[in-house]
Each structure stands twice: as structure tokens, then as C-alpha cells.
Simulated assay, not measured.
Amino acid sequence: MAVPAQQSSPVRHRPRVTIGTDGSTWGDAALEWALRHAWLVNAGLKVYSAKTSDDQAIARRLDVYRWLHASVTTSETPEHTLLTASADTDLLVLGHHGHSHHNLGIGHLVLPVVTGSQCDTVVVRGEPRAVRAEHGWVTAAVGGQHDELIVRRATEIATRYRDGLRIVHAWPLPGPRSVSAGQPNDVLDRARRLVAKVAPTLTPSLHMVRSRPHEAVETCTRSDLLVMGPGSQPERLSPVTRTALHLSPCPVLVVRP
């Protein structure tokens, strides 16, 4: 017997989180970050581990979050595996470098994965307190074409984490290449109104930084997550986003429009 339309209820989509780890220090940190995030947002978790991963260590971590719906698969082609998985997940998580990276900077997988991902991507990096989410702040970097998505995503996460929300807009110093989405107060006011619409009980802290946009990354101290856009050019990350992936003092979430 068919259920009348007025009695049927919509099927709620359960968030999905995918994590790639190679058992390195930052691979382990990314796994711990993904586990905590999946728990807070009630998401299913898919773990892709490299041959260098310690399966028993992964099992011990999963046992701490045993109520999560999680699975583990070994992958021999991490870049291809993660990019393929990004088509069927809501959030992709990886550490900013792994076993094969011995210099300062980021691992060779980070830029290709963040650039090619079909979903939001978090690169876990930064100082220990930020990685452990101990500061209690989520920061949204606005001033570009993806502001609405950035603010929505940051607001959703801050609400789930029960964190404060900081919105930062870097107002460029005078110069021939200075580009902005409007006057600084207009940009911040639009963001404030959107937060009020998405989460009426959340009052964001608004900050206008007079600097080059990439220098504003340094203002994200005492934050647990920096949420930003990929840039305006398809299949190419902006210099600001690349700077954040290299230098941010906290994990970076790059939204996928």
C-alpha cells in the first residue's frame, strides 16, 4: 500500500567523511581530526590507509569511537583513490605531509588533491592546540566570490562544535592589483547577516585586517579551523589558499563550490 504523500518523511542524508592516512605523524593527526569531526557531525567515516600504516594503531583509534559507522580500506594509489572518493563523500581529510616528505612545506599530494577534489577538503596542519581543537574558534576568510558558501560552512561547523565564529576580511593595501568584493564593512555586514539567517543564536566576531590577503593567514592564531575558498580560477588554487596550506597555524578547510 502506498504511503500518502503528506505522511511520507524526507530521507535525511547522513554526512560522509573520508580520510587518507599513511601512518606518519601528520597522517595520524589527520585520522584523529577526522574521527573527532565525524563524531561531532554524526557522519559515517571511510578510512583509506597506505601500506606504511599501522593497521593495529588504526584499529585502536577506531575503537575509541566505536559507535561511529567506519570502514578501513588499504590503498596503493593514494592520489587516485582520494580524488575518486571525493565524488561520493562530503569531506576529504588528509595531513599536510606524510612519510615521504622530509622538508619544510607540504607533501606532494596536497595541492593536487585539494585542487582536484569534488568535495570540501581539510588539510590538517598547524600548532598542536589547534589540531586538537582546543581554542574554541572557527575562522572564515571572506572577500571573494565564494563568501556565501564559506560563511555557511564555517557557521555550520562552529554550531556543531559549539565554538565561536570569527569572520576575517583582508582589505588590500593600495595597489594596482587590489581586488575586493566591495567595501570592507559591506563584506563583513553581508557575512554577519548570513550568519544570522543560518544560526540566529550565533553572534560572529568580525575583523577587518588591513593587509595583503595572504598575510591575513597570520591572524588565524588561536583558531581551530580556517575556512576559505579555492579562488576564482577553475582548477587552480589562489595564492591566498596556497599560502594558507603552507603556513596556516591551524587546519584549513577549502570549500568546493
Rank of each mutant, 00 (worst) to 15 (best):
A2I: 09
P4V: 07
S9V: 14
P10Q: 11
R14D: 08
R14W: 09
G23K: 04
S24Y: 01
A34E: 03
A38H: 03
L45F: 04
L45P: 02
D54C: 12
D55E: 06
R60Y: 11
R66H: 14
R66D: 15
L68M: 02
A70S: 15
E76R: 13
P78K: 06
E79N: 07
T81S: 10
T81R: 05
L82G: 10
L82Q: 08
A85F: 03
S86D: 07
V93K: 04
G98I: 05
H99A: 02
N103S: 14
G105M: 06
G105V: 05
L109E: 10
V110N: 10
V110A: 07
V110C: 07
V113D: 04
G116T: 14
G116K: 12
S117L: 03
S117E: 06
Q118P: 05
D120F: 06
E134S: 11
G136A: 07
G136P: 03
G136V: 10
G143R: 02
Q145S: 14
H146V: 12
D147G: 05
A154Q: 04
A154W: 03
T155L: 05
I157R: 07
D163S: 14
G164V: 01
V168H: 11
P174H: 08
G175F: 07
A181F: 03
G182D: 01
Q183T: 13
D186S: 03
R190D: 15
R193T: 11
A196Y: 05
K197W: 12
V198K: 04
M208D: 13
R212H: 13
E215P: 00
T219A: 09
L226K: 01
L226S: 12
L226Q: 08
M228K: 02
G229E: 15
S232H: 13
P234D: 05
R236G: 08
P239F: 11
V240T: 15
R242V: 15
A244T: 03
L245Y: 01
L253D: 09
L253M: 14
V254Y: 10
V255Q: 05
R256T: 02
P257R: 06
